[in-house]
Amino acid sequence: MRALVVIERLADGVDELSLQALAFGRGLAGGPDVHALAVGEGGADLAPLLGAHGVSEVHVAEHEAFVSYAPPAVARAVVDLVERLSPGLVLAAGSDRGNEVLARAAAMVELPFAANCVDATTGDPLRVTRQRWGGSLLEEAELAGAPALLTVAPHVVAAAPVDGAEATVDTFTPTLSPDELAVRVVEHVRAEAAGVSLSDANVVVSGGRGTGSAEGFAVLEELAELLRGAVGCSRAVTMAGWRPHTDQVGQTGTKIAPDIYIACGISGATQHMAGCKGAKKILAINVDPEASIMASADYAVIGDLREVVPAVSAEIRKARGT
């Protein structure tokens, strides 16, 4: 089957999640008929890299609209290719932009769209397993019509280079209506750099309602600093106004994948755990030995975080002789 994969570009290459979507699409296509769409100038430079990831032909959409992200224009480029190539599958990464572009394309061609798939089986109809509740629940579903449009949930398959030849390049100009040019990024506001970011941190020390107050986070900040980590929190905390939403871990917060997640005074609701299931290890510090989080944590300390956390910091200092 022919697959078309929409690629998200970075300044210096291809986003990792797009390479994962390529690996997923290649497996599903069951053959070498894998096409990629890269929008914007310089897309042709990706031909060696995409070829090495199993792409036979890369289609580069060129138009002045693509100097900044313009979601309806990208979706139109997808639809133009769908008409020209008649793929059986159209895939993208289950990222903000991947989901947005495929939902728009699906609306244009009046077909169903399955977001964040973890598995799929070809057939008529195509069958998918997809994430609900941020991955806390899975749904098996059938997708009517062709092509099947789907995104691939992040980190369910690894990017996998093959011994592919360089992809051939086809350059085209999509036909864009004025409406499709009207929604676009017109400005970028850069964030002021602030310490270790939550999404990239190796260690995250996180607090829940059990911290008791905004001031209750001082002991967590101290431990995070000693471990060169970031501070996170639960939604109970952001709703109370103790921490900004940018610190929230979970289904509607940030998704993290640290080496260790230290969850202090957090009960372990599914919506919270949806944000930290990528953590390699989880340590729960909780007064309640029956808290739900005990079922997903690797380690636990039963006790009051206000005593346990400072004791851990003191022990680290002692060991370091500082």
């Binding site: 899975l138 749904e139 579903a141 059938e142 997708l143």
Partner: peptide, 8 residues
């Protein structure tokens, strides 16, 4: 057209 078969 996106027909749920079952939850897991």
């Amino acid at each position: 057209r996106l027909r749920k078969l079952r939850l897991v």
